[in-house]
Simulated scan of single mutants.
Amino acid sequence: MKRFTLRVASSFISLEQAELNLQRELNKDSFDDTYTKAKSAWNEKLKRVEVAGGTIDQMRTFYSCLYRMLCFPHKMYEIDKNGKVVHYSPYSGKTEAGYRFAGTGFWDTFRALYPFLNLVYPGINVEMQKGLISDYKEGGWLPEWSSPSYSDIMIGNNSASVVADAYVKGLRWLRY
């Protein structure tokens, strides 16, 4: 039985960026190296919240839900060849400087996900807030459904609640 390794990368920007992402993320790591790094990275994220007193099944359920919660919103930004944060903008159709996230509907996540991230994972939430600023600057308003493409489909302004919650919790770096 032969064993082979397949390396795959993607980019919303270009094939050249996908190649750069592949080199940056995987370099020449073996499958086992990649597995170990990924496990370590997830354990670092998951250990920020410790629960006690539940059954093993309840603990598994909790950490499974925490893992899934941390999978969204998706990071839609990449690091270019100069080490700068960039993203493809569905608003301008160009590669733009700065952060961008997608894959969340603010009508539900503004109630629990973002307030939780503000408290437990403030670093990533700072990036998400900067991503909202990118959306506003490029699209003219805060998104209500942050999909990878342009979406003007929701009423209300739940994402404004996300910005306000970050602000009142002390994340006052909004000098983008």
Rank of each mutant, 00 (worst) to 15 (best):
residue 1 M to H: 09
residue 1 M to C: 12
residue 3 R to N: 07
residue 7 R to A: 05
residue 8 V to K: 02
residue 10 S to W: 11
residue 10 S to Y: 09
residue 13 I to E: 05
residue 14 S to L: 12
residue 14 S to D: 10
residue 15 L to Y: 13
residue 16 E to P: 01
residue 17 Q to V: 00
residue 19 E to W: 11
residue 19 E to D: 03
residue 24 R to L: 13
residue 29 D to L: 15
residue 31 F to H: 08
residue 40 S to P: 08
residue 42 W to Q: 03
residue 47 K to Q: 12
residue 53 G to M: 11
residue 57 D to G: 08
residue 66 L to G: 01
residue 68 R to G: 03
residue 72 F to L: 10
residue 74 H to F: 15
residue 74 H to Q: 10
residue 74 H to L: 14
residue 75 K to T: 05
residue 76 M to F: 13
residue 78 E to Y: 06
residue 80 D to G: 04
residue 82 N to W: 07
residue 85 V to S: 03
residue 88 Y to I: 00
residue 91 Y to L: 13
residue 92 S to A: 11
residue 93 G to N: 04
residue 93 G to E: 08
residue 95 T to M: 15
residue 99 Y to R: 00
residue 101 F to Q: 01
residue 103 G to R: 06
residue 108 D to F: 04
residue 108 D to G: 00
residue 108 D to Q: 00
residue 109 T to V: 07
residue 111 R to F: 15
residue 111 R to V: 10
residue 114 Y to M: 06
residue 123 G to D: 15
residue 124 I to S: 13
residue 127 E to F: 10
residue 128 M to D: 04
residue 128 M to A: 00
residue 134 S to R: 06
residue 135 D to Q: 08
residue 138 E to F: 02
residue 139 G to D: 11
residue 143 P to C: 05
residue 146 S to N: 02
residue 149 S to V: 12
residue 149 S to A: 13
residue 152 D to N: 10
residue 152 D to F: 15
residue 156 G to F: 09
residue 158 N to M: 09
residue 161 S to K: 10
residue 162 V to D: 12
residue 163 V to G: 01
residue 164 A to M: 15
residue 167 Y to V: 03
residue 173 W to P: 03
residue 174 L to K: 04
residue 175 R to Q: 08
